[in-house]
Design a protein around this nucleic acid. Structure first.
Length: 211
DNA sequence: AGTGCGATTGACT
DNA sequence: GTCAATCGCACTA
């Protein structure tokens, strides 16, 4: 009998400890690297979704590619919250994306969550994404937002104290973390601000690996 | 009120 | 590999 690969991650049902805000790095780049291997937990009426964060991008202070560049606007308000809050925005007419705000209040910086490794709630994710391909559920910022039912309702929430969505500790050891240029931007293109767990198949943009 | 543009994805060659 | 869909937002007037 053939093993069904999509069932394997469902078996991981370890209790997950919340990250405390006091243990999150305030610095944007440090936070982007720190988040690799940690978990994102989404609590829904139907149950819990869990994914391991395997890819992030930092958009630090003064970065011309960042949404905070050019100042605070109503829609970007959450990016200026103190570190550890959700900044959710909508783009390309169809995609939501989620950042974790970084730095202190009023500064304006964040870390884009680009890819997750699905751990729990895979059946729900498959329904949301209308596919059974495990690799297509949460690889990419727009896909993971769709799989996790992330939209503007979650914008501005505290990711350490909230119930709907929160950051959890690692559930297993984290592999070596690679670094590369960021994806899909036109400015500051040479900055090595993208972080990922090396060799993890749920990382997007595998071509852009450098170090 | 109109315009231009995305921190992408999915469909297609 | 290429490429168009799609719409909220910021900006101009």
């Amino acid at each position: 009998m053939r093993k069904d690969p999509k069932q394997i991650p469902s078996r991981i049902t370890l209790p997950i400890k919340r990250l405390r805000r006091s243990e999150l790095p305030v610095d944007t780049l440090a936070l982007a690297k720190y988040l690799i291997g940690k978990t994102l937990v989404r609590e829904l009426p139907r149950g819990r979704l869990v994914g391991r964060i395997v890819e992030t991008e930092a958009y630090p202070v003064g970065d011309a590619a960042g949404h905070a560049f050019g100042g605070k606007t109503p829609s970007r308000h959450s990016l200026f919250l103190p570190h550890g809050h959700a900044y959710v925005y909508f783009t390309y007419g169809s995609c939501f994306m989620m950042n974790v705000s970084s730095e202190t209040v009023g500064v304006g910086a964040g870390v884009l969550i680009r890819a997750l490794e699905p751990l729990e709630g895979i059946t729900f994710m498959e329904r949301r994404r209308r596919t059974h391909r495990l690799l297509d559920l949460t690889r990419g910022p727009g896909r993971l937002a769709q799989a996790f039912d992330i939209d503007k309702r979650l914008d501005g929430l505290n990711l350490c104290s909230g119930r709907k969505i929160w950051l959890g500790d690692s559930v297993r050891s984290t592999g070596p973390v690679g670094k590369s240029i960021r994806i899909g931007i036109n400015r500051e293109v040479d900055r090595l601000y993208r972080f990922y767990e090396r060799g993890n198949p749920f990382v997007s943009g595998l071509k852009r690996m450098r170090e």
